[in-house]
Nucleic acid binder design. Structure first.
Length: 695
DNA sequence: GAGCACTGC
C-alpha cells in the first residue's frame, strides 16, 4: 500500500480505514487514467475480502440475511457494496445502501468507493448525513448513510422500497439506532422477501445477531420454495492486522493512572521504536497522566527524553486534536493518552504499543429517577480486544493490560451492555410510534430494554401530551414532535413557542441545547472565561444567556475572532447555525410560524416550562448552600457552578439536564414562576402536589 | 466554586 501516509510528507487527507475509523492519507489521487485504474483494481484484489467475493455474492443471492464477520482491514466496507453493484443489485433503478454509525466514516467510505469506481462523488456513489445530502435521485445507486438517517428515511418510506440490499456496518457497536434498525429491518423482511440484508459485525456479537434473525418456518415457506434461505448465513473474513502480544498485570493495580504512567515509562525504556496509545476514561485521568509524564520528563530527563505526550478526547479543541495525527519526528516516540474515542472513532497510525486501563466512562439510565449518569465502569472483553488491535496496524505490537489475566477471563463481561439498555427511551419510543409500531413493549428487539424504562418513556410522552390514553401519537402535537429530530422535551418546547409567539428565540435555544457546549473552557483560563460569560449573562438564566451569545455572534458577522475573544466555541456556533436552519425548515413544514417575541422574556420562559416542567425544582426554604429539591422526586440538586444562576439561586428553577458527581448538579437553568407549572401541565402538577410548597 | 465517554437525526 504505497498510498499510506509517510512521516514527513505533506498534510494528509482523510480516508477510510475500512473499519469505521479514520486514517489520514497523503497524496491527492490523480485523475483516472488507464494505469491508475488497473492499480486500483490490483489494490482491490489484494484486500482479504476479495477471496470471498463469489461466496459473499452467492450467500446474498440465496439468503435473506448474511452476516459478515470481518476483522480489521478486511476491506468489507468498501468492497461489498461494489460487489453487489457489479452483480446487478443496483439494476432497474434499485439502490444499494450501506450504513455507518458515524458521519465521518460515511463521508470517508463514500469518497473512497467513488474513487475506486472512477466516478464523481454524488453521482453513482453518494452519501447522506445530517445537513448533507450528496446523492442524485435516479443516478445514485450506491449510497452510504448514517443509521440515524436511514431510520429517518423510514418515516417517509417505511418499507425502504428503493433499496434492494442494505448493509448495516459496525453492527457490533450496538448503538441505539443500529438496534432499532435491526428490529425494524427484521419486520420489513417479512413484507419484502426480495430485500437482502448484510450485517457486518465482530465475532462475539455475530452469534447474537444471527440468533435474532433466525426466522421460524412461519409464513416464510413460500420464500423457501423460491430458493431463499431464511436462516442467516455467517461468513468470516480475516483481517490484515498484525499479531499483538498481550501482557497482563500480575497483580490488580490500585491506581490505573499511575500504573499507566509507569507502564509508558517502562515501554519507552525497554522497547524498540513505535508510538504508544494509552486508554484512560476521561479528561481528568488524562490530564493527570499527561502532567505526570511531563514531570517525569523534567526530573528524570534521561529516561523520558524523546517522549512526546499528547491528550486526546472529544472535548479538546479541534487544532489540538489534530496534533495527534502529526508525524512523529525521527528519534522521538509519541504517547497519545486517550478516551474511548481512539477505540472506535479514530485510528492512529504508527501505534505499536497499547496500554489498556480496562475502564471507560459509560452511560447508565435509572428509570426510577429518570436520570442518566456517566460512570467509570469496566470495559468488556470485546472492547479489550478492540483496544489491543490498535497496536497491530503497522507491525506486530504489544498490549499491556493493567488488569490480571484471571480478571480478563473470569470477571470481565464478554460484551458490553447495548446502549438501548442504558438509555432514556423517549426519543426511541416516539420514533417507533411514528413508524406505526404501537406495541412498544412487544417489539422484537435485538436486546430488549427494561419494561421499567419503556413504561417511564411512555409516561413522560403522555405527560407531554404527545401520546394519548391509548398510547397513540396525538394529532397534531405527537406527529409534530416525532418530525423534529431532537429530544422530545425540546421539540415540545418548540411547539409551545408557536402559541407563545417566540419561535424565533426558542429554536435558537433548542439548537444550543442540542449540542455539547458553546463555551470554551479550560482550567487555566477560568477567570477570563467567567468574565466573558458575565458579558452575556441574563438574569432569567442560561437559556436567555444563549440568546445573547447568539445575537453577539451574528452581530460580529459570525466572526471566529469574536468567538475567541469571548471564550465561545466557534465550531459549536457554526453547528448551532446549521441546526437552527434545519429546525427552521422543519418548523415551517409542520406549520409553526416563525415569530419573535421582541425581548419579552416571560413567554420564552413559559415555552421552556412547557417542555421541561418535569425538571422543576424549588430552593429549600432555609438552605444556605443553595440546595434545591426536585418537585417530582424530592431529590436533592444544586445549580452547577457553570450556570449564570449559580449563587443567584432563584426560588423556582427548571433545569435542562443533571450531571452527577459528588452532588447532582443542574446544568442550564432558567428561573420560572411556579404558577406556570400548573398552566403547562395541570395533569402532572395537580394542586395537591404544589400547594404545600407554594404557600 | 466544579468539571462533560462517544455517537446521531
Amino acid at each position: 500500500m504505497s498510498q499510506f501516509w509517510k512521516p514527513g510528507t505533506e498534510k494528509p487527507r482523510i480516508l477510510d480505514d475500512e473499519e469505521g475509523g479514520v486514517l489520514f492519507f497523503s497524496g491527492t489521487p490523480s485523475s483516472s487514467s488507464g494505469f491508475r485504474y488497473s492499480s486500483i483494481e490490483k489494490q482491490r484484489q489484494r484486500l482479504p475480502v476479495y477471496k470471498y467475493r463469489t461466496a459473499i455474492l452467492y450467500l446474498v443471492e440465496t439468503h435473506a440475511t448474511t452476516i459478515i464477520v470481518g476483522e480489521t482491514g478486511s476491506g468489507k466496507t468498501t468492497q461489498i457494496p461494489q460487489y453487489l453493484k457489479e452483480a446487478g443489485w443496483a439494476d432497474g433503478g434499485r439502490v444499494i445502501a450501506c450504513t455507518q454509525p458515524r458521519r465521518l466514516a460515511v463521508q470517508a467510505v463514500a469518497s473512497r468507493v467513488a474513487e475506486e469506481m472512477g466516478v464523481k462523488l454524488g453521482e453513482e456513489v453518494g452519501y447522506t448525513i445530517r445537513f448533507e445530502d450528496l446523492t442524485k435521485p435516479d443516478v445514485t445507486v450506491v449510497k452510504f448513510l448514517t443509521d440515524g438517517v436511514l431510520l429517518r428515511e423510514m418515516m417517509d418510506d417505511p418499507l425502504l422500497t428503493k433499496y434492494s440490499a442494505i448493509m448495516i456496518d459496525e453492527a457490533h457497536e450496538r448503538s441505539i439506532s443500529t438496534d432499532i434498525l435491526l428490529g425494524l429491518l427484521k419486520k420489513i423482511q417479512r413484507r419484502r422477501p426480495e430485500l437482502r440484508l448484510i450485517i457486518s459485525s465482530a465475532t462475539i456479537e455475530a452469534k447474537l445477531i444471527s440468533a435474532f434473525f433466525q426466522t421460524r418456518k412461519r409464513r416464510g415457506l413460500e420464500n423457501e420454495e423460491l430458493g431463499l434461505q431464511l436462516e442467516p448465513a455467517i461468513l468470516s473474513v480475516e483481517g490484515r492486522g498484525f499479531n499483538v502480544q498481550i501482557n497482563y498485570a500480575e497483580e490488580p493495580v490500585p491506581d490505573y493512572v499511575q500504573a499507566a504512567v509507569s507502564t509508558v515509562l517502562l515501554i519507552h525504556e525497554k522497547e524498540s521504536w513505535g508510538d504508544i496509545l494509552v486508554f484512560l476514561t476521561g479528561q481528568d485521568d488524562i490530564d493527570i497522566a499527561v502532567q505526570l509524564l511531563n514531570e517525569e520528563a523534567q526530573t528524570n530527563g534521561k529516561n523520558t527524553s524523546g517522549l512526546i505526550v499528547m491528550p486526546l478526547y472529544s472535548g479538546l479543541p479541534r487544532a489540538e486534536q489534530e496534533l495527534v495525527f502529526s508525524p512523529t519526528p525521527r528519534g522521538k516516540r509519541k504517547v497519545v493518552i486517550s478516551t474511548n474515542i481512539a477505540e472506535t472513532s479514530l485510528t492512529l497510525e504508527g501505534v505499536v504499543y497499547v496500554v489498556d486501563s480496562g475502564f471507560s466512562k459509560q452511560k447508565f439510565y435509572n428509570p426510577t429517577s429518570d436520570i442518566e449518569n456517566l460512570v467509570v465502569a469496566p470495559i468488556s472483553r470485546a472492547s479489550a480486544r478492540q483496544r489491543a488491535g490498535r497496536a497491530g496496524r503497522v507491525r506486530p505490537g504489544k498490549c499491556y493490560r493493567l488488569y490480571t489475566e484471571e480478571y480478563f477471563l473470569n470477571k470481565m463481561p464478554a460484551e458490553g451492555i447495548p446502549e438501548i439498555q442504558r438509555s432514556n427511551l423517549v426519543s426511541c419510543v416516539i420514533q417507533l410510534k411514528a413508524l406505526g409500531i404501537d406495541n412498544i413493549l412487544g417489539f422484537d428487539w435485538p436486546a430488549s430494554p427494561s419494561p421499567e424504562a419503556m413504561i417511564r418513556a411512555l409516561e413522560v410522552l403522555y405527560s407531554l401530551g404527545v401520546l394519548d390514553d391509548d398510547a397513540k401519537l396525538t394529532s397534531p402535537a405527537g406527529f409534530q414532535v416525532a418530525e423534529i429530530p431532537l429530544d422530545p422535551l425540546i421539540s415540545k418546547m418548540i411547539l409551545a413557542s408557536n402559541q407563545f409567539g417566540c419561535s424565533e428565540e426558542i429554536i435558537t435555544i433548542a439548537a444550543v441545547l442540542s449540542i455539547q457546549s458553546i463555551w470554551i473552557s479550560g482550567r487555566g483560563i477560568q477567570k477570563d472565561f467567567d468574565n466573558a460569560k458575565l458579558r452575556f449573562a441574563a438574569a432569567e438564566g442560561d437559556h436567555v444567556t444563549f440568546l445573547n451569545v447568539y445575537k453577539g455572534f451574528l452581530q460580529s458577522g459570525k466572526s471566529s475572532q469574536w468567538c475567541h475573544r469571548n471564550h465561545v466555541n466557534y465550531h459549536a456556533m457554526k453547528k448551532v447555525i446549521e441546526i437552527r436552519e434545519q429546525l427552521k425548515r422543519i418548523a415551517q413544514r409542520i406549520g409553526i410560524s416563525l415569530k419573535s417575541c421582541d425581548g419579552d422574556m416571560q413567554v420564552i420562559r413559559k415555552a421552556v416550562t412547557a417542555g421541561f416542567f418535569a425538571n422543576a425544582c424549588r430552593l429549600e426554604a432555609f438552605s444556605h448552600n443553595g440546595m434545591y429539591k426536585t418537585i417530582r422526586g424530592s431529590q436533592e440538586v444544586y445549580i452547577h457552578p457553570s450556570s449564570v444562576l449559580f449563587r443567584v439561586n432563584p426560588k423556582w428553577v427548571i433545569y435542562h439536564s443533571l450531571v452527577s458527581t459528588d452532588r447532582q448538579y443542574m446544568r442550564n437553568v432558567i428561573s420560572i414562576d411556579p404558577s406556570w407549572l400548573l398552566e403547562a401541565a395541570p395533569h402532572f402538577y395537580n394542586l395537591q402536589r404544589l400547594k404545600p410548597i407554594t404557600h
